[in-house]
Structure formats: structure tokens, C-alpha cells
Design a protein around this nucleic acid. Structure first.
Length: 288
DNA sequence: GATCCGTGGTT
DNA sequence: TAACCAAGGAT
């Protein structure tokens, strides 16, 4: 047992947020939907969409029975709308391969669209109580500080990081599952990227970063996420028009929201290529 | 393995 | 206010 375990488990028991996908009655499907939505998206924005989603599509089969465009529309402004397509594709695969039940097997989860290393481990751990290394940005930051003594982890998950996290995983299955969600919650609420609340931290006295005097991050500069004028912005605006429309949209309405013609055409073609939009025989555009 | 993929709150 | 960043995945 690591010295970190008891304080984190105790802290989680006292401070865990009451989130819909954490409640005892939450289905594995509810957990899975939350995990796809939470990829790169804050909890506060996910909450209302998750509630609507589960109300409309309580099971994978309910979603799989709908056109993909309905998933894209319901996704709203959560961002990265391809996740909506992946969730729909995953629901279809669950119906086809797993009798409509979210699989508990890690390998089966990993094989689903939109489910990578993190998400497979998260679903297996949170929904099924299994023992897995659940390594998200929160956990990586907590371990970088408490164990590594640095402010922030590397840009991408390293092998050493995975091994360290595996070494830290409690042996008991149920304890491991609680540890996974607990250390993640600590990163989300206390050991935050900016202005960490170290005075509220249950493991402050064990923290290597704190002991070292909070040395500032000195790794390679993190690539700035440019936005204005990018294809991402253009795609977002185009899709917003399609999403907010009742039916097919005339190209003139798309031309009105992005001046640069070549970029607009490229992005529109990209949306069609990605399956986020379709071009009708009449030359209009719509959600699939 | 580097790059691409949305959105909006926070500082 | 511009920069940062939030439960990653696919290619």
C-alpha cells in the first residue's frame, strides 16, 4: 500500500461530487456516455447534455435505432462532434456484438469506436468495479506532483508514467476502483492545473512538488492552440448552421457565415467526408 | 508520433 | 484580454 492511498480514499469519501453517472443506479451505458462526453470537455457542460441523452436513449439500442444526425444534433455544442458519431457507432457495435449490453471486458471496450486506453479503463473501473490503471490528465497531474515532484506531466502519456501508475494501483479490486476515481477527483477539485488548493489537499505533506518548493514547469513549451481562422473554427460554424436548422440548408446560408471560399469548401467537404454532414441531390446540406 | 479535431469558462 | 485548458481518440 502506498502512503497516498488512505488519505485519498478518505478524502474522496468526504468530498466526491454527486454526479449522475456515479450514482448506484447509473447504468454502464450512462457511465459510457459520460466518458465519451467528458473527453476534453468540462463536467459542467456535460451535465445537461448527458441528462437529455440518457432520457432520450436509455440504452445503446435506443441510440443505434436513430440516424447518426440525431446524435450530432443532440450533442449540441459540447465540441468535437465526431465523438457523437463514435458514440452512435459504438452503440451499434454493442447491439451487434454484445446483445445490446455494454461489455465489461476491457479488450471488448477498447475495440469500440471512440474508446481508447483511458476510456476503456475508465468504463471497466467505474461501471464494473474492475482494477485498471485509469490515467487521465487529472491523475497524470496528481502523480507528476506528488510522486514526480514536477508541476505538470509530459505532453503525452509515457511508458514510465503508466508503470508508475500501475505500481501505485491497490491490489484489492474494489479498492483499486475507488482509488482510480478518487485520485482523479482530487486532480479535478484540488490538485488543479492552475492555482492548486494545496491547503485542502489530503496528501500535501507527502507531495514531492510541495517539498521541492513548487518549482515552476520547465519542460518544452506547450503548443498554443490557435483558433481564429482555423479549419476547426470554420467547421464548427458550418456544423452549427446545420445543427440549428430544421431541415436541409441552402449553400448560400453556409457562404454567409464564412467569407473565405476555398477554406469553406474544404471544410464542408471535410464534414461530409467525416460523416457529419450530407449533400442532398438538390445541392443542399443537412445532418446525416 | 505529430497533428488534427470544438467549445466556452477562467484568469 | 489573450492565453490557458477541460475525464482523449484516430490517423
Amino acid at each position: 500500500m502506498s502512503a497516498l492511498h488512505e488519505p485519498v480514499l478518505r478524502w474522496y469519501d468526504a468530498h466526491a461530487r454527486d454526479l449522475p453517472w456515479r450514482r448506484p443506479e447509473a447504468s454502464p451505458w450512462s457511465v459510457m456516455v459520460s466518458e465519451l462526453m467528458l473527453q476534453q470537455t468540462p463536467v459542467s457542460r456535460v451535465l445537461p447534455v448527458h441528462e437529455q441523452w440518457l432520457e432520450r436513449w436509455p440504452t445503446p439500442a435506443d441510440l443505434a435505432a436513430e440516424p447518426t444526425g440525431e446524435a450530432v444534433r443532440m450533442w449540441g455544442r459540447l465540441g468535437y462532434p465526431r465523438r457523437a458519431l463514435r458514440l452512435h457507432a459504438a452503440a451499434t457495435a454493442i447491439v451487434e456484438r454484445h446483445g445490446g449490453e455494454v461489455p465489461a471486458d476491457h479488450a471488448a471496450l477498447l475495440a469500440l469506436p471512440g474508446v481508447g486506453d483511458y476510456t476503456a479503463a475508465a468504463i471497466a473501473s467505474f461501471a464494473f468495479g474492475q482494477r485498471h490503471v485509469v490515467l487521465d490528465t487529472n491523475v497524470r497531474r496528481v502523480l507528476a506532483r506528488t510522486v514526480g515532484g514536477v508541476e505538470l506531466p509530459a505532453a503525452h502519456v509515457t511508458k514510465a508514467e503508466k508503470e508508475a501508475a500501475a505500481e501505485l494501483l491497490p491490489e484489492d479490486e474494489a479498492t483499486a476502483a475507488t482509488w482510480a476515481v478518487g485520485v482523479m477527483e482530487l486532480g479535478a477539485l484540488v490538485c488543479t492545473a492552475a492555482r492548486p488548493r494545496c491547503t485542502e489537499c489530503p496528501v500535501a505533506s507527502l507531495c514531492a512538488w510541495r517539498s521541492a518548493g513548487y518549482p515552476a514547469y520547465d519542460g518544452p513549451p506547450r503548443r498554443v492552440q490557435t483558433w481564429a481562422g482555423t479549419d476547426r473554427q470554420c467547421r464548427g460554424r458550418l456544423l452549427a448552421v446545420l445543427r440549428d436548422a430544421d431541415g436541409p440548408v441552402h449553400p448560400s446560408r453556409l457562404e454567409a457565415i464564412w467569407a473565405e471560399e476555398a477554406q469553406r469548401a474544404r471544410c464542408l467537404a471535410g464534414l461530409v467526408e467525416d460523416g457529419l454532414a450530407v449533400r442532398t441531390d438538390a445541392g443542399t446540406y443537412a445532418l446525416p
